[in-house]
Amino acid sequence: MALDQATEKTSDDTNISTFLMLPNFVLSLVERILNQALKLDPNVAHKLTTVKQKRLLVEVRDWQQTIQLVFADEKLHLYTADNSDYSDCMISADIDTLVALKNPAILTQLIRQDKLDLQGDLNIAQAYSGAFSEIDIDWPEQLSAYIGDAPAQQLYMHLMSLKHQGSKVTAKLSSTLTSLFQDELAVTIHPLELAQFKQQNRELKGQVAAIEQRINTLLNAITR
């Protein structure tokens, strides 16, 4: 049966993503970015030597995509994969959980909560998680190659200051919004206030009508 199914697996997918080979294209871009990051922080490559040539399969449940990740020849290789492909370690989770894996300490907690399936060698997943969570690029050093030491340091300080201010503003905004949502604020008026407003409105309407009446009387008196 499995053989029949495999033999009949002739893809006639006609959607635009398949036609343009988007998963392959996106993975090739991500691979480039990650390898650039490896060059900028050599410690990451050093941390990944323990998983050299080992294959990690990552199933992203909400994207319905499986990705294979191999660290070989000091580079990361990312390809699409089938769940049935050979792997030294396979993890399956939705994207939020995968992002949360930046903290390797919560790996077992996520497995217990059934948010993460893990098969194979746990150390491989932990090694990748640990390497990428501790990525630390020496930006002034990298920038100095292009614009010199002093300007690179100054630019870096300015950017850090901006980042600091940005996070302060974000924190303030967040706390304001939190208090707005948490505190019982009078967002709409009370029914009694509405009734009073209507009453005042009616009185005002009456006064306007009286003034109109008087103006008309005066106009009539002038025209005679």
Partner: peptide, 15 residues
């Protein structure tokens, strides 16, 4: 390049 990437992805090549 993408066609070749797909070939490598389907190859199952490993250490």
């Amino acid at each position: 390049r993408l066609w070749k990437r797909q070939t490598i992805a389907s190859s199952g090549v490993r250490k």
